Amino acid sequence: MYYVALRFMKDTMEAEDAMQEAFIKAFDKLHQFNGEVSFGAWLKRIVINKCLDRLKARKMELVAINEQVLGTVEDQEDWQVEDGIGIEEVKKEIENLPEKYKYPLMLYLIEGYDHEEISEILDISQVASRTLVHRGKKKLQDELKTLRNGTGY
């Protein structure tokens, strides 16, 4: 859970604080755990929510999206990066993305949440989740191409 918190908080002390607050909240809400998901998944979601709460408190607001203008974006199931690019390079490039893409993409690619879960965690619609993940993937691919080739083309 510490590493999950650290991915969001980027600071060991902040991650420890967020994790500790999440553990206290989990202990407080233990009676609400119903076994619908594994205990680890339940706890992980509490840790992520606590990290996001702390980030929001620091005025790191996510950009709202006008859903009427965007419409629905289909996921690309064939999304890939070039051979030779490792997970650490991908994680590093995700960190450099604008925040509006970084957190949805982290939740989707690294934490494995689906759009319904991301929409609940970030308090956005599923359409906004799909859009942010899609655009984040595109931007990430462009950055990884630049990293590998020196240009975006």
Rank of each mutant, 00 (worst) to 15 (best):
M1A: 05
Y2L: 13
Y2P: 01
Y3N: 13
V4P: 04
L6A: 02
R7E: 11
M9S: 00
M9Y: 00
D11V: 00
D11M: 02
T12E: 14
T12K: 09
M13S: 07
E14M: 07
A15C: 04
D17A: 02
E21K: 11
E21C: 01
A22R: 00
A22Q: 00
I24R: 07
K25Y: 05
K25P: 03
A26Q: 04
F27C: 07
D28E: 14
H31C: 07
Q32H: 05
F33V: 05
F33M: 04
F33H: 03
E36F: 05
V37H: 01
S38C: 01
A41R: 13
A41E: 15
R45L: 11
V47G: 01
I48Y: 03
I48C: 06
L52G: 00
R54N: 15
L55Y: 00
L55F: 02
A57L: 12
R58D: 15
R58L: 09
R58I: 00
K59G: 09
M60C: 09
E61T: 05
E61G: 03
V63N: 08
I65T: 12
Q68C: 06
V69Y: 11
G71H: 00
T72F: 13
V73D: 07
V73E: 10
Q76L: 12
E77I: 06
D78P: 02
D78Y: 06
D78H: 10
W79H: 10
Q80G: 06
E82Y: 07
E82F: 06
I85D: 08
G86W: 08
I87Q: 11
I87F: 11
E89A: 07
E89R: 02
E89S: 05
K91F: 11
K91Q: 12
I94C: 06
I94N: 06
E95I: 01
Y101K: 06
Y103L: 12
Y103R: 04
P104C: 04
M106Q: 13
Y108W: 12
G112Y: 03
Y113S: 10
Y113Q: 13
D114C: 10
D114S: 04
H115V: 09
H115M: 15
H115T: 13
E117Y: 01
I118S: 04
I118P: 05
S119Y: 02
S119D: 07
D123G: 08
R130Q: 14
R130P: 06
L132E: 13
H134W: 08
R135D: 12
R135G: 04
G136D: 10
K137Q: 14
K138Y: 10
K139W: 05
D142M: 14
E143C: 07
G150N: 07
T151E: 13
Y153A: 14
